[in-house]
Write a protein that binds this DNA or RNA. Structure first.
Ligand SMILES: [Zn+2]
Ligand SMILES: [Zn+2]
Ligand SMILES: [Zn+2]
Ligand SMILES: [Zn+2]
Lengths: 138, 138
DNA sequence: TATACACCCTGTAGTCGCTATAGGGTCAAG
DNA sequence: CTTGACCCTATAGCGACTACAGGGTGTATA
């Protein structure tokens, strides 16, 4: 029946996840504890592999571990409304959107600062000047 | 002469930096240790305030503490060429640019995933489906 | 003078999502 | 019988703070 057990290294290779990370997910309640072999090795079922793939895809999409935990719980109760799923996904997208905007205005400032530097000595450097609040002298 | 000493709270209010963060900067060599009062309180000079402002502005622009440290060192030796300043600033801008691109393609995927959800039950949820690698049955 | 209160001190531990050791045990092949 | 790949636990580190715990200081007021 259970001849198809997978080692932690198998899961690692199958999902591109470091072995330590898989153990970390287990310790943090994202991946259920598998059974063990005689030699105390973790022996995973195919369901573990599915679950780990789910976690990794969600992580690749930038969901936090808390969000992944919530998504996993939701996906386990398949008769529920998916409204809660939608809330999590939209909240995450909004945050990504906000980060993009923040970084874009940051880049605008950086571009200006860098543009203003004419590569003289530090005393005249516009980059440094833009960081320093006021010249110390006078 | 030195009647204008500033307390750590003064620096905190003047720069919008938490007191603990100021002590953290000191411990990590970004802000030099100030003299102390009789009661062992930190007593800052105006130069400390300038330096802290510099740090904060650089942090606001997203420079890492290592980069800030380097910028501070460069700004202290005002006769140097500003080429090194330029290198740091451009490297940072490139990284910001890269992050924007990464987040934009991430957002594209999230938009697609969210768009595909028609708010039925979890069993049919396109968001969950896009995370799960394959249905367990069959 | 007591005491309340705001402020300061040190030191340590927590956050997030891993990653990297240290110091061992297991298992199959040669 | 030893090598080597794999596995185990436990702990500490990353970056950049933040949040205590458990005190001390300094001043205004009842
Ligand atoms: Zn330049
Ligand atoms: Zn310059
Ligand atoms: Zn929906
Ligand atoms: Zn849905």
């Amino acid at each position: 029946m259970s001849s198809a057990h997978l080692s932690i290294g198998d899961l690692s290779r199958a999902t591109g996840t470091k072995v330590e990370t898989i153990r970390f997910y287990e310790k943090n309640g994202l991946l259920p504890e598998p059974s063990r072999t005689q030699g105390n090795y973790r022996a995973y079922e195919p369901a573990h592999l599915s679950r780990l793939s789910f976690i990794r895809r969600a992580r690749d999409l930038g969901f936090s571990l808390d969000q992944v935990r919530a998504l996993l719980t939701l996906s386990d109760d398949r008769s529920q409304s998916c409204a809660a799923v939608d809330v999590i996904a939209r909240a995450h997208r909004d945050e990504v959107e906000r980060k993009i905007k923040d970084l874009q205005s940051l880049k605008t400032v950086l571009d200006q600062v860098i543009e203003s530097c004419h590569c003289n000595i530090v005393a005249d450097c516009a980059i440094i000047e833009s960081l320093a609040p006021a010249p110390q002298g006078s």
